[in-house]
Design a protein around this nucleic acid. Structure first.
Lengths: 232, 232
DNA sequence: AACCTTGACGTCAGTCTGACGATAAGACCG
DNA sequence: CGGTCTTATCGTCAGACTGACGTCAAGGTT
């Protein structure tokens, strides 16, 4: 470090891996890139900091709102990892702070600027190398799915895939689809109702679905699962 | 975003939360800051990227080597989180990518440049607000300790606190000290020897410690614990 | 040799788990 | 209206796991 050394500065981007369960499959939100590099390829939604002073978490929430039209408040949004290998963007040095967002199966309000290019893509179609994504976004999605899968075991994250009110069956379908594994409905019911603060009964019941009406729950105050619900 | 908008760039720093167990307590490596801001305060070791092209993971390994004299190869080094609130550094906008390093209880080779100012500080003295650290480093240490505590449950991370060869008692002391919780030696022995690929016996035994010699183990190929070793 | 210390292994009751049976409560269909 | 299908909820039971704790092994110390 000689006397003429100055602190190097780089561009900071924020990318989002937005996951949801729809049509019995795990999906990730992707956009078609309209500009070089990787023009025409699918990519994670994201962008650069809007100003030099923007908080990173705020930038993530802003991008989520811009790309999905959803308000970040109430949705699950957590930092995933930062990807900073040189050369991952051919234009310039970019360090990307990636976030994992979990949203219920809501219709994307396709109004708004960038959101029109956004679409849901099944993750197995992305991870199976059927499509090559822009940058290192394939790896990022793999990391995001790994994180989500393992957090289902130890936290109440699964409720973030559900609407505010949901049944135990809906919650079980989340586990089954994210894990790609069938679960016994009776044992699952016993486990989730046994965890203190996981589920809160609303008193309401479903109707009209054919079959015995299910009790409708809301997510409880717990954030970690004691005991955990482990994969086999 | 008007036409004159240009991509903002910020300074990227890499900070390290290096944890070890020594003298029956969990310690974190801290340095005395020699420059403003926060001159004279304790801070996490770290620094800016050396060049605009340096990989972030490489920068973390380089800082670890510079500050501890240890070779990052063989040590546990994982990304913890990125802290990017504006104003966390009063000089300029800095985004810090933090890493969690776990090292065995080795004497710090105090040779080398920055390492002379580095010292081990018990984490409970830091977290108890007994000392105010520079920047948001107190929060970062709290996050690092949380991560370490919870990874002991589900991964083989505890072996990273041990020398390459260790006994089950030494491993148990790691759990007890990191968790601040006493564990039954007999049940612990049963659990760790029951996990496939966690421990590999070397065939050697300890001697001269007073008491029955202990079998010496080496870490096995497993990285996750099935079943986990849960806190109460 | 008696005793202390630490490690390794056993016992046992209570709990949790997975596999699966039984019942409840609706829709659908003749 | 009763039979049947579907889905939800509750129960049963054997095997695995857990925590609490006893026993023996194998070295030092006095």
């Amino acid at each position: 470090m000689d006397a003429s050394w100055t602190i190097p500065t780089v561009a900071i981007a924020v990318d989002l891996a937005v996951l949801t369960v729809r049509a019995e499959r795990l999906h990730v939100l992707l956009v078609n890139r309209g500009v070089e590099p990787y023009r025409g390829r699918l990519a994670l939604p994201g962008g650069f900091l809007s100003t030099e002073d923007e908080d990173i978490d705020v930038a993530a929430a802003r991008e989520l709102a811009e790309e999905t039209g959803l308000d970040a408040a109430g949705l699950h949004l957590e930092q995933l990892r930062t990807y900073g290998a040189p050369g991952r963007d051919p234009r310039m040095r970019v360090v990307t702070v990636c976030y994992l967002a979990i949203v219920p199966n809501l219709p994307l309000p396709s109004a708004g600027g960038d959101a029109e290019r956004a679409r849901w893509v099944p993750v197995d179609r992305v991870l199976g190398r059927r499509r090559r994504l822009a940058f290192d976004h394939g790896q990022i999605i793999a990391d995001a799915v790994d994180r989500a899968r393992s957090k289902l075991e130890y936290t109440t994250l699964a409720t973030a895939f559900c609407n505010p009110e949901f049944t135990i069956s809906e919650l079980r379908r989340v586990y089954e689809i994210v894990w790609s594994e069938e679960l016994d409905a009776r044992n699952f019911h016993r486990k989730v109702t046994g965890v203190d603060g996981f589920l809160v009964a609303t008193g309401k019941r479903t109707s009209g679905n054919g079959g015995r009406p299910a009790v409708i729950y809301r997510r409880g105050p717990a954030t970690v699962l004691h005991p955990p619900i482990l994969r086999t």
